[in-house]
């Protein structure tokens, strides 16, 4: 875990607003199987607009699978997933609709190695949103500045450090102006000294009121920006609470065990 600097810690939370009425994501009684293996069991989750949720849990608990179901990189077999009022079914049109509005950041960045940073950022706006190239490039530069690497625009992903690549990946998602951002262990493939630069970008996103779901082991980050921490084990949500209560007073035995392992 990396401590985030005091200055960023101070300006966290106050003006982040969570909508009381607008639901961003709703998961109702969702089950998923990999062949015969029951990976997700009876998941119920309601995420309001502007909410920032951290999902924690031991490896193999189904955290990643859960958020991958939200933009249908994985298919669920029972229950409902409703994103921005669109229910995810086998209908390709609906899936595309949801994916346009949901950004995703991967553990291994998954930048397109054959395209420059700028091309990585403008690819989807041009081909999916139909935005003119000049405009898409302007937006891309804006987000590159935001993640503090505008000078790398014409390099290739292979020339960047891991932390820089992950920041580009975040910028790439932001270029699509998503309503929701999903983070799948965004810092676990990074060298320790690069974790901070990525977390800072995520924190500033949270401050802007982005709806976020993060699968992460960064408990400092969870404490600082999350409205809610969800603990998963064996494919189910075991416990959820506000970060303060979650860390200071875990209820379930499994949560206690997990926290005792991860917090030394």
């Amino acid at each position: 875990m990396t401590e985030v600097s005091a200055t960023t810690q101070d300006r966290a939370t106050p003006h982040m607003t969570v909508s009381k009425t607008n639901v961003a994501i709703e998961v109702i009684g969702m089950h998923k199987w990999y062949a015969d293996f029951h990976v997700l069991r009876d998941i119920n989750l309601k995420v309001m607009e502007g909410e920032r949720i951290v999902i924690a849990g031991p490896s193999g608990s189904g955290k990643s699978t859960l958020i991958r179901c939200i933009n249908r990189l994985e298919e669920h077999q029972e229950g409902q997933i409703i994103v921005n009022g669109t229910e995810l079914t086998a209908d390709i049109k609906r899936i595309d609709e949801v994916r346009r509005e949901v950004g995703m950041v991967f553990q291994h960045f998954n930048l397109f190695p054959h395209l420059t940073i700028l091309q990585n950022l403008t690819l989807a706006p041009i081909w999916v949103r139909g935005i003119p190239k000049a405009e898409a490039e302007a937006t891309a530069m804006h987000y590159l500045e935001r993640v503090k690497i505008p000078e790398q625009a014409n390099k290739f992903p292979g020339q960047l450090s891991g932390g820089q690549q992950q920041r580009v990946a975040i910028a790439r998602s932001l270029c699509m102006q998503p309503k929701i951002m999903l983070f799948d262990e965004p810092t676990s493939a990074l060298d320790p000294e690069m974790v901070k630069e990525v977390l800072e970008v995520m924190i500033s996103l949270a401050e802007d009121g982005m709806t976020m779901i993060c699968v992460t082991h960064e408990m400092g980050f969870a404490r600082q920006v999350a409205n809610r921490v969800i603990f998963m084990d064996q494919g189910q949500i075991i416990e959820q609470n506000e970060p303060e209560a979650f860390f200071s007073n875990p209820q379930h035995e499994r949560t206690k065990l997990f926290l005792s392992q991860i917090l030394h």
Partner: peptide, 10 residues
């Protein structure tokens, strides 16, 4: 790579 392209809505 496919997943990244999917999640961008391509």
């Amino acid at each position: 790579q496919t997943e990244a392209a999917m999640s961008l809505g391509l």
